[in-house]
C-alpha cells in the first residue's frame, strides 16, 4: 500500500502508441519467419535451442510491450520472476533426473 501511494501515476497506465504496437507486431512476424526457415536447416542439437531462444524473445516482446509489464510497478516484475523461476526449477530438476539416469 505504501508503494501504491508513492507512485501517483499508478492509476493511469502508460499509453502506448499504435505505431509502437505495429512495430512490435512486425518484429514478432519477422521472428516467426526466422524460426520457420531455420526449421528447414539441419542444425542438429541446435534446432531445439534456436527454436526456444526465438520463442523466448517473442514472449518477452509480448510480456513487456503488449502486456505492459515494463510499464507496471516493480511488484509485477518481481512476481513474474518468481513464477518463471519456479517453473525453471521444475524444468532443471527434471532435466538432471533424466539426463544423468
Amino acid at each position: 500500500m505504501d508503494q501504491h501511494t508513492r507512485t501517483p501515476h499508478a492509476e493511469t497506465p502508460h499509453k502506448i502508441s499504435y505505431g509502437t504496437y505495429v512495430l512490435i507486431w512486425f518484429g514478432l512476424l519477422v521472428l516467426t519467419a526466422l524460426t520457420v526457415s531455420l526449421a528447414g536447416i539441419e542444425l542438429g542439437r541446435w534446432v531445439i535451442i534456436t527454436a526456444l531462444v526465438i520463442a523466448s524473445v517473442k514472449s518477452l516482446l509480448v510480456l513487456n510491450m503488449f502486456m505492459h509489464l515494463r510499464f507496471e510497478e516493480r511488484t509485477f516484475r518481481v512476481f513474474a520472476l518468481v513464477a518463471l523461476g519456479t517453473l525453471l526449477i521444475f524444468i532443471t530438476l527434471t532435466f538432471f533426473d533424466y539426463a544423468f539416469h
Binding site: V36, V47, A51, L52, A55, K58, V62, L63
Partner: peptide
C-alpha cells in the same frame, strides 16, 4: 498467444 508461441515450434517445426 504466448502459450502458442511455444507450442508452435515444439510440435510443428520438429524436423
Amino acid at each position: 498467444d504466448i502459450i502458442w508461441i511455444f507450442l508452435f515450434p515444439l510440435f510443428y517445426l520438429l524436423h
